[in-house]
């Protein structure tokens, strides 16, 4: 049997024994309806997990910065056994409502300085929708 024929058979075996789980397909289909048409997208401009690989066993919090126009969202994510603890700061500072999107959606209020804490973020996809005076900003998805 040629390499190509063998590979074709292996491809069939993979499709049989390791298919995309159907519930995942459904989540991806639904992602379309959930996309924010009304919000500005704050891009991930810094992530401490990018770049040169970290020392193994390094337990320092993950630092992330999202940015759109003059607004930045700084996050510090401390990994826990089944998720993470997120400390955030909006700049320029000010009160805002922050929706946490993902497996366990919740709405938080920042303090007067634009700070917020969420202790119990489940592992998985994570994004924030921030309602500010006169604007709604959504951060790019990351995986906690």
């Amino acid at each position: 049997m040629s390499d190509d024929a063998l590979e074709a058979e292996l491809r069939r075996a993979v499709e049989l024994f390791d298919p995309v789980p159907s519930e995942l397909l459904q989540v991806a289909v639904e992602a379309y309806a959930l996309r924010a048409l009304d919000a500005e997208l704050a891009e991930l401009v810094f992530d401490s997990l990018s770049g040169p690989s970290r020392v193994r066993g390094d337990r320092a919090p993950r630092m992330l910065t999202f940015q759109v126009a003059e607004l930045t969202v700084d996050l510090e994510v401390t990994v826990t056994a089944d998720g993470g603890r997120v400390v955030g700061q909006l700049m320029p500072p000010g009160p805002a409502e922050v929706e946490v999107l993902g497996h366990r959606p919740v709405t938080l209020a920042t303090d007067e300085l634009g700070r917020f804490v969420y202790d119990d973020v489940p592992a998985g996809p994570f994004s924030l929708r921030c309602h500010l005076a006169g604007a709604t900003v959504v951060t790019e998805w990351i995986t906690v």
Binding site: V27, A28, L34, R35, L41, G124, P125, E140, W141, T143
Partner: peptide
């Protein structure tokens, strides 16, 4: 999931 959410976004 994150990958598809990012594409939608």
């Amino acid at each position: 999931q994150t990958t598809w959410f990012r594409l939608a976004q």
